[in-house]
Design a protein around this nucleic acid. Sequence first.
DNA 1: CATGAATGAGGTTTCATTCAT
DNA 2: GATGAATGAAACCTCATTCAT
Lengths: 211, 211, 211, 211
Amino acid sequence: MSSPPVRRRRDRDATQARILKAAIAEFARFGIAGARGERIAQRARSSERMIYYYFGSKDGLFRAALEAVYAALRDAEHALELDQLEPQAALEAFCRFVWRYYVEHPEFISLLNTENLHQARHLRKSERLGELVSPVIGQLAQLLSRGERAGVFRAGVDPVELYLAVASLGYFALSNRHTLSAVLDRDLRLDANLERHWRASAEIVRRYLAA
Amino acid sequence: MSSPPVRRRRDRDATQARILKAAIAEFARFGIAGARGERIAQRARSSERMIYYYFGSKDGLFRAALEAVYAALRDAEHALELDQLEPQAALEAFCRFVWRYYVEHPEFISLLNTENLHQARHLRKSERLGELVSPVIGQLAQLLSRGERAGVFRAGVDPVELYLAVASLGYFALSNRHTLSAVLDRDLRLDANLERHWRASAEIVRRYLAA
Amino acid sequence: MSSPPVRRRRDRDATQARILKAAIAEFARFGIAGARGERIAQRARSSERMIYYYFGSKDGLFRAALEAVYAALRDAEHALELDQLEPQAALEAFCRFVWRYYVEHPEFISLLNTENLHQARHLRKSERLGELVSPVIGQLAQLLSRGERAGVFRAGVDPVELYLAVASLGYFALSNRHTLSAVLDRDLRLDANLERHWRASAEIVRRYLAA
Amino acid sequence: MSSPPVRRRRDRDATQARILKAAIAEFARFGIAGARGERIAQRARSSERMIYYYFGSKDGLFRAALEAVYAALRDAEHALELDQLEPQAALEAFCRFVWRYYVEHPEFISLLNTENLHQARHLRKSERLGELVSPVIGQLAQLLSRGERAGVFRAGVDPVELYLAVASLGYFALSNRHTLSAVLDRDLRLDANLERHWRASAEIVRRYLAA
DNA sequence: CATGAATGAGGTTTCATTCAT
DNA sequence: GATGAATGAAACCTCATTCAT
């Protein structure tokens, strides 16, 4: 008796998940205004009608997509265990984690850019905003004071600024790699040049905190 | 005697300039797909028809807008005279210049983000790409070796990486200020927080080069 | 019980049919470039939007119109039963059928002319091309050999050439009747002159096959 | 003193001629509504403005194009000297002339089709219509009576019908060759098949007149 | 006489969304 | 609960033509 509803429920969730995945890819590639409901429906092997049925509107779908990519980052951050490592190693692990995450999730960068174009309108409307706030600043604060006590980091560094520095150095080169590659004499779409950039960036962060 | 043709000429250029200015504002605010020809025409006190007469297509107009903001940056960079200052002061002047430019030209950041969404498609098609390439890397290279000879900068710093670091630290916090402000506990839309960020960033750059 | 879906089905088909009929008339009168979506929508008591919903594009609509007029001719040809008549009578019946069809379906002539202007681009793209190929050449081949065996037609006449002759003699005078009437001293828009032409044409065909 | 005006006059005529030639090609390929002033101007190495300056409107240009192709045919017909040949040979020469003319002047066929789509509106407005009327019917009438007297042609053949027959048989297969080739099992765009058709057509005409 | 600059009007097509079971 | 059918509004773009010297 309860089998049909369960299966239904599963289909329902599966369809929603397929639409969401397709939407993330579409919005990442074309932005909000450039995204096409038809393409999303096709990629999701569903119909445009279902998008409206489950997500209400294009903006509603974008909000869900944005929430999904934020939630995925937060989940990945939760898995970080910086307090298991020596301060210097933990710092390096953190940088590596952030920069790798950006490389492996270009859709995250693109959705954030799009959301900033819209002045974070969707994010501010999100009812899940609380859940999405990152625990990472707290972790960095702990790391900083641990390193300071151990004498390897200098005092007076603001954890938010440390986070901004690490994020900036990783994000900018990826987010702007197409224009930079056209204008600079260095193709940041090549792995070798990206790694060179990360080595330089790791050096910058190390020196920033050096006691 | 030949004043009428001159006036015509002037009108022509003036109309083009008004359209271009309106287009930069529109594209900066809405991206390419979200931009509306009608709004551009109104803001430019012209007609949609003239957009197509002078720029051929929406993409053509975007290309012109992009070229214009790149050209404006390059002109500003030309005015920089880093070799007139002591290395340390020149470095600070450079950072200040870049970061101020970003704050004062949010349309530049937005157009670059939009162009990267489109994988620099318009920039690569630009026939003016050559003119737009920045002379700034060369200036930084000179500055680095001057500082190195003077014993105030360490050796082995790549000027491209220095440029990327400075640009990243200024760009990211502005480009993403809306999402960051929603997610962090620090509102980067406030001047005080931006200045705090620049002080931290200046410190980062100083330590990066410190001998 | 299932009457609502049937009604829907009917409406759908009815709307498509009305659009198609209106399109045939419009294309016949103005060609493709000269045809106006708005006029088609009005004549069909529908909307321009529905044209695109059902036919995708102006070219798609023209293709459908062309397929429809070809299908109508093929259906009419199927009703021909040349093997029920004596060879000579069958030949006359065939000529009469073709020429009458052309007179009664000026839209057929016009659409073919338009399609030839476009080098049969739409016809070659048609997925229904196979269905539209006429069975008439085969019927003529049979008729020719039957008449030959009966001693009333001479041997060696190619059925394709016979078809071309009959079609040419009927088509040309109608298709070009406006210019011919302006340039010759005979108004082919008058029935009397058309009939005179058909009598002459029938004589030509008769003599072509005479044993 | 009279040299500049003469040169002017020459330039003027040359420009008009280039525009007219370009217009004939453009109208032949795209019809009236499909023709583009811009393409005509480019092909003529002139400007759209000049088209309006010399020809007043698109329709005016089409009328001039139509008059030009009619005048060219009439000139070619004038060169025919059917009375120098034996009746049978003259008949063949006439057929050959007409059919070759159609092959070598596809723009003539296309412009006539286009003009018939427009119900000869432009032709009827032409002030040069009188000049364009063909002398060929008269020539055929003479030929017919000459052949009749010589006992090689039968009596009672109407010269207009003879003309229509010859024209039909040549025109139709060329004008409709694209659709016919798609629908029949014979590609009339191939020379071999066209010649086969002319042989059959010559046979038809011969038998039509045979005593 | 000749022409570069300008444009009103309207064309085709697309888009996000709702209707109606 | 789920979905095929339908659509109003507006988007981008083009066209034939005129303006103004």
